[in-house]
């Protein structure tokens, strides 16, 4: 039995039983090497302690949950998306976001700056003045047309 085989056995002290010759060689190794013997005893104590770590059985609904996941996984993507458990919260989130965006957009409608207002009012004033002048011109032309042309000297 090699030292490596002895170490393997030490790592797995509760493994399948060794045959008589191997067992004898193993014990000789331990007698000759106190370090290996100490390691073997510590490993046995460790395994004894680890044996006490028991885990509870899976809950009663475990199988059902597995089959439910298999069924869900077999569904097409769009259906899984539509009926996903997180969907209601997503919809609520999207609705809240839409309302927020609406409120922000309403609050932030473009407001004219004072300089822009001044320019705008000057332009408007000029526009009205132009209209006024045009009306005056039209009025003047009307008056001009109404003037008796036959009395004009030099014309017959």
């Amino acid at each position: 039995m090699t030292r490596e085989q002895v170490l393997d056995r030490i790592l797995d002290p509760t493994g399948p039983p060794l045959d008589e010759a191997e067992q004898s060689q193993f014990e000789q190794w331990l007698e000759r090497d106190p370090e290996l013997k100490a390691m073997f005893e510590q490993q046995l104590a460790l395994f004894e302690t680890m044996d006490q770590w028991e885990t509870p059985e899976p809950s009663a609904g475990f199988d059902e949950a597995v089959y439910a996941r298999i069924r869900r996984d077999a569904e097409p993507f769009w259906r899984r998306f539509l009926f996903a458990s997180w969907k209601p919260s997503l919809v609520a989130g999207l609705a809240a976001a839409a309302v927020l965006i609406g409120v922000l957009a309403f609050d932030q409608q473009p407001v004219d700056e004072p300089a822009q207002v001044a320019v705008k009012s000057a332009a408007e004033a000029e526009y009205y003045q132009q209209i006024e002048r045009a009306l005056d011109d039209v009025e003047m032309l009307i008056d001009f047309d109404a003037f008796p042309q036959s009395s004009e000297p030099g014309r017959s």
Partner: peptide
Amino acid sequence: YRCPIVGYLTRMVRNQGVAEELGQEVFL
């Protein structure tokens, strides 16, 4: 294999609930 797998996962993640979810994932 449900018990050995969930047992292995429980010892790995140290939480029975999480281990069961992972166990379902394994069988899926």
